[in-house]
Design a protein around this nucleic acid. Structure first.
Lengths: 350, 350
DNA sequence: CTGAAAGCGCTTACAG
DNA sequence: CTGAAAGCGCTTACAG
């Protein structure tokens, strides 16, 4: 006989049997009431059971249900991020909030786990048995990302990958991303209009597929038409980034246009310019990417691209739940638009 | 006979029985190997079982284990926040990351759920059966918060409440917060030194116990020594807040010192001042609260108080896990220091 | 050292 | 309409 209350801390929750005893029926009948099978239970019994449920304060135990149905009613969000504080990245918080809300509406739970190191993640990933499927936002080189995706999609668990492409050799997968190339092309157009003759894309030494897409799109549009260069700094802290950029500007002079891989980088560029006495946008235009809430904190307002990250998170939840119901993903790839949002950080040609 | 693969999507995970069959032993023996009971299994059998585990790719199923042990190996973080995008609040993301990392180290999962409305949360809360305990960060009036706490601590589940006091009538609870009063007193001291003759505390119309603490501390120190006033605006969006503050300043003039209930509010105050042509800190000093990463985006650097929110999240995880092991919380209340961090947003008296 | 049995809380057939 | 049985994957006593 197992201990009904191993933590030793008070009354444990009533179970089906408790309700059945009180109502003087079998657990089966109570189960039928719980699952709303009106056709299986007489009016009179139904009432008695409802009363017993109320009296005991019974609520179904997710665990027994899960075990029997082989469904966990939970989805994981896995994040591989350079920082231990993986939720400091607003992209991740938008994804998480979007997923959480969409899942909650359908009675599913969101399990969040992040790790700064791919390896650590792979180890702890050995246990995905608590969820029905997962979504993943990963930095890292292509090889490691794919190995991670394979791990996460083991044992018939469907997987959504964010901001990346679906590897050919994984079948039960859906890739959801924003159209970063299109957004970057829009920004590039703005930069060309501004009359800039040099542009510097500032990325991260950490491999992020989305940043690579943005960079490639910028290059494709700008490379022939102005001096286009790229540089990458370590994603350690904002103040370190400001310092790195300050040193860079001091050594090479500021570009006519600074293209931030994201808004944080762009803002660091603005701070660095300020330190050196350059004005934005008069001495240097700046663009960002993603336009999350904090963009509005800074003057001049950054010209950027609005990320639909929250919607992407919600879409991932919906895609996963539909996949669990139907047995397959409706689409293999889902691409969200990313809309240009103008600020005042780019000079307008007179 | 139940369907081993209800979602119909490929090979399901191997279970104890599969390994046992392959190794030619009973499931018991495999279980003993899994749980590292070397004393219970002979060297020779041990090797055979290990080989079978490797061959089958077996990993223990958390669900069976949970059901048997009556332990979920999961902790919930519940957030009641005015916005649907409850993770946009950096306080919540720090708590979540701190909890997630501390839990992961001990093999526990973090389940995140947020809701904009207390009532919605109470409904969905009916099912806490998937976790061993939970932590909660809630706005709302005292009555609703306490009712929520009672719900969350039902059925012998331990509860950590963030940034609030532990209600007397709940036994199995631990309150963890930062010393907001002390932080506010430090800021008040800075304001007094600045020579300000009027100060305006800007809070939220949403009830947050922590904001109330900060406000009360400011009042206790400043009320007799300068003109101290308070105002609260709706937490809808940053731009709306800037507008509200602009209107307020236009109507009442800017105070000598603006005391933001948090950094976001303080920064909105800086933007509003700027709109009206007031300089910070020359025309108006500004202080914030919490000093999360984005504070560094804005010039002049905000004088604020460093929140240990990440550590608080980690402490919550540790407290809960220790409570689950020992049967009781080590402390009923845990108060973290909140350190003044100077910026350049407050005038220095010559 | 090894295994057959019981049971965690539930649901799915199948009998009455 | 109602119930006894079997089983989801595991672990805890208890026998051999």
């Amino acid at each position: 006989m197992a201990d009904r209350d191993p933590a030793g801390s008070g009354k444990s929750a009533p179970v089906l049997r408790d309700v059945a005893q009180r109502a003087g029926v079998s657990v089966m009948t109570v189960s039928n009431v719980i699952r709303d099978r009106r056709d299986k239970v007489s009016e009179e019994t139904w009432r008695r059971v409802l009363q017993a449920i109320e009296d005991t304060g019974y609520r179904p135990n997710r665990r027994g249900r899960s075990l029997r149905l082989q469904r966990e009613f939970a989805i994981a969000l896995t994040i591989i991020h350079p920082h231990e504080r993986f939720l400091d990245d607003p992209y991740n918080t938008e994804l998480a909030a979007g997923m959480s809300n969409a899942l909650a509406r359908r009675g599913y739970a969101l399990v969040v786990n992040g790790a700064p190191k791919m390896q650590a993640m792979k180890d702890s990933l050995s246990d995905m048995s608590g969820v029905d499927g997962s979504a993943v936002m990963a930095s890292g080189d292509q090889y490691n990302r794919r190995e991670l995706y394979r791990l996460l999609s083991r044992d018939g668990r469907p997987l959504v990958v964010f901001q990346d492409r679906a590897p050919e050799d994984i079948a039960d997968i859906c890739a959801i991303r924003q159209d970063d190339a299109a957004g970057a092309l829009d920004l590039a157009e703005v930069i060309l209009q501004s009359g800039a003759r040099s542009a510097l894309f500032v990325g991260s030494t950490w491999p992020w597929p989305a940043l690579e897409e943005r960079c490639a799109a910028f290059r494709s549009k700008l490379a022939g038409r102005l001096r286009f260069e790229t540089v990458a700094f370590e994603e350690s802290s904002f103040s370190k980034l400001v310092e790195d950029l300050t040193l860079y500007f001091r050594a090479h002079g500021p570009p006519d246009a600074l293209l931030g891989g994201n808004d944080q980088i762009a803002i660091a560029g603005m701070r660095a310019a300020e330190r050196l006495g350059f004005a934005v946008p008069d001495d240097m235009s700046v663009t960002g990417y993603n336009a999350f809430a904090f963009r509005e904190y800074v003057e001049p307002l950054l010209t950027s691209v609005q990320s639909p990250a929250y919607d992407i998170g919600a879409a991932a939840a919906d895609a996963l739940l539909t996949r669990l119901e139907t047995g397959r993903f409706t689409e293999r790839e889902l691409v969200f638009g990313a809309r240009l949002t103008m600020g005042r950080s780019v000079t307008m040609r007179p």
